[in-house]
Amino acid sequence: MKGTVTVDEPRCKGCALCIPVCPKGLLRLADARFNARGVHPVELIDPSSECTGCQLCATMCPEAAIAVYRAVRVRA
């Protein structure tokens, strides 16, 4: 696992601008649930650990609702 993202769901307005910028297509609107605003928040679906933590989604997010993490490189 190289990277991952978390979505601050209460902040997310469901504008979906982050979805098309993900090079791996790992983001989608969570159809099954609503946040307190009444919108489907964005969620990361990454079963094969493809996320690289490239930050494109966070760069696009108008709500600063996406935090990005990368795996720490541990020297042997």
Partner: peptide, 8 residues
């Protein structure tokens, strides 16, 4: 194991 690279 993850370190933040972008935060609020």
């Amino acid at each position: 194991a993850m370190t933040p690279v972008y935060e609020f």
